[in-house]
Design a protein around this nucleic acid. Structure first.
Length: 532
RNA sequence: GCUCCUGUAGUGUAGUCCGGCCAAGCAUAUUGCCCUCUCAAGGCAGUGACCCGGGUUCAAAUCCCGGCGGGAGCACCA
């Protein structure tokens, strides 16, 4: 069709001009009679934000899981994995398990287990079960022995560098040729207090050293780690790796659909093979891309140095995409959920600007954020002829959030930026109060009350009575990194005046300072700027 | 280097498996208008995209081949 455009277009022109000669009314009538379906206004497609259906769900009780390693504070990336898993569990009326993957003593801390639970709680995720891999170690030993006995695993005592080199060069080491008895002996020796030390032996899966998939090249299943474990202290010496424990527990706990980020995708083949060798059930795997926010890294390698050299006080800093950071900033968990669902289950790595989250959040907080006036760099204005000394202000323009009464004293405070270009005889509107004609400018302004009539061309500005002013500090988080570089100006503070009504609000309340932006009250003297 | 994944408007995505209803949907950003005693929320409208090159086909965002870009794995981390 497209190739023949040149031939067709004269014909089209002819038909169109023919139709155009028919009066519009008649055209409409004719269409209504002959093709009424054309006049139906197409319904706007609703916003989706629904995850695609899962495969292979027939006749199954769907079980998903969220498997964090308790080795750091939870962030937006954890939220993605957890929320997607929970949404699927809900979609199929199934279950979701929280499983702490704590099999690397020395990296885990009780504090992290707690922080993850607090974060999940904040997100509103309810788990049907909570497990620790560290509670299932004996079971994992059993499975390991099964693999040893079937000659699908062997104990390797090569040096780490040699193993690495062999894997790269697709070469088996001499430990692979050991017989069953020798392997069993070595395995026992891994547990023996006087046996192998850390780094001297590991149980490897017999995969395929020639495989193009590097994870198949005889990966480690168990290694010796004598460090103190956060929960179990010195209870075990031999610990499983993720490649082994994760998949065994998924299978054993009836996980039907296991979701993980894309970096684990190569391991699917390995995990399937291990389960096959053990004759165990294989779950479905789903993979999704990493989630990052522009200029807000989540990796420990990016964050740790900043904390160590004091550029950021702690992981709850409102510039960070940690769950605690987001919470302090005033981001609502519902906004995080909507945001994450809006990203879908793509395998693309997403690097979303904070604006996207912000927009979801604004819609949520707007209707319960009371409006207060805020003044930066105050300028005094005294007004003559004011007809009243107190006024009732509405807490929200469209939602009933109550009203407050404000006393008006001798002086009114106005923001310098609003008064910069004001000269004598100019008229300004003090919002809700009335129109004032300026009679004197300079370091102090004076003015005369005119009337209360709303006039389109008069500048409307917010104000605070000096007697009613309360000074607070606002912390303004900005983008942490700009073009891979730490933004030295990423945290700004502003001393401002707001109404004393601020003191009556609860901590954590969200406020919209008029013509300034949304802030979360942190204390009677400090608020954090959420977003505009 | 090898292997795998991925590439749709400024940004984030839907659609890709099973080619036509996609001259491409939604959100966000942006512009304009309406509403409004906020530069909020809400309503309406506009701008704006299938990485490139071949091929298959009546028909390709969708299938095939080849480039190029981005990410990941090659840990005794998860």
């Amino acid at each position: 069709m497209r190739k023949k455009v040149k031939e067709i277009s004269p014909v089209i022109d002819e038909v169109v001009s023919e139709i155009n000669q028919i009066p519009l009314e008649q055209q409409q009538k004719e269409i209504a009679e002959k093709y009424p379906e054309l006049l139906q206004v197409e319904e706007k497609k609703p916003e989706q934000n629904v995850l695609p259906p899962l495969k292979n769900t027939e006749g199954k009780n769907i079980v998903t899981r969220f498997p964090p390693a308790p080795n750091g504070y939870p962030h937006i990336g954890h939220a993605k994995a957890a929320i997607i898993s929970e949404e699927y569990a809900k979609m199929y009326e199934g279950k979701i398990i929280l499983r702490f993957e704590d099999t690397n003593p020395g990296t885990e801390r009780l504090e992290y287990y707690a922080a993850i639970k607090v974060g999940m709680d904040w997100l509103g995720i309810k788990f049907n079960d909570e497990q620790h891999v560290s509670d299932d170690i004996p079971l994992l030993y059993q499975k390991a022995e099964q693999l040893i006995n079937s000659n699908d695993a062997y104990v390797c005592t090569c040096k780490q560098d040699d193993i690495s080199k062999d894997r790269r060069e697709m070469r088996s080491c001499k430990c692979t040729t050991l017989n069953l008895e020798e392997n069993q002996k070595r395995w026992k020796n891994m547990f023996n207090e006087k046996g192998y030390k850390e780094g001297q032996a590991l149980l490897r899966f017999r995969g395929d050293m020639k495989s193009g998939n590097t994870t198949m090249r005889d990966p480690a299943l168990f290694r010796i780690n004598e460090k103190h474990h956060a929960r179990l202290e010195q209870k075990y010496k031999v610990w499983p790796t993720y490649d082994f424990s994760g998949i065994i527990l998924d299978s054993l706990n009836d996980v039907t659909h296991a979701m993980r980020s894309k970096e684990f995708e190569l391991r699917k083949e390995l995990h399937n093979t291990i389960l096959q060798k053990l004759g165990m059930r294989i779950p479905e795997f789903l993979f999704f891309g990493r989630l990052e926010l522009v200029g807000m890294p989540v990796s420990k390698s990016a964050l740790k140095p900043l904390i160590e050299n004091g550029k950021i006080p702690w992981y709850d800093d409102p510039r960070l995409p940690t769950l605690e950071g987001l919470r302090r900033r005033g981001i609502r968990p519902e906004a995080v959920r909507k945001f994450i669902l809006s990203l879908g289950l793509t395998k693309n790595d997403t690097n979303s600007p904070f604006d996207a989250l912000e927009s979801f959040n604004r819609k949520i907080i707007d209707h319960d954020s009371i409006r207060l006036n805020l003044i930066k760099n105050p300028k005094k204005l005294s007004i003559t002829n004011l007809p009243t000394n107190s006024i009732e202000l509405s807490n929200h323009p469209t939602v009933d959030l109550g009203k407050r009464i404000v006393e008006i004293g001798e002086n009114i405070l106005l923001s310098e930026e609003d008064m910069n270009d004001i000269s004598v005889n100019d008229e300004i509107r003090l919002m809700s109060l009335g129109n004032v004609k300026i009679t004197e400018t300079g370091s102090k302004f004076t003015g005369e009350y005119i009337d209360d009539e709303l006039k389109g061309n008069v500048k409307k500005i917010q104000w605070i009575s000096e007697d009613n002013a309360h000074e607070i500090k606002i912390i303004i988080p900005k983008q942490l990194f700009i073009d891979e570089k730490f933004n030295e100006e990423s945290l700004q503070t502003l001393k401002v005046f707001t109404e004393s009504h601020y003191l009556k609000l609860k901590d954590n309340d969200e406020i919209q300072f008029i013509r300034f932006g949304y802030c979360r009250k942190e204390s009677s003297h400090q608020a954090i700027f959420t977003h505009k």
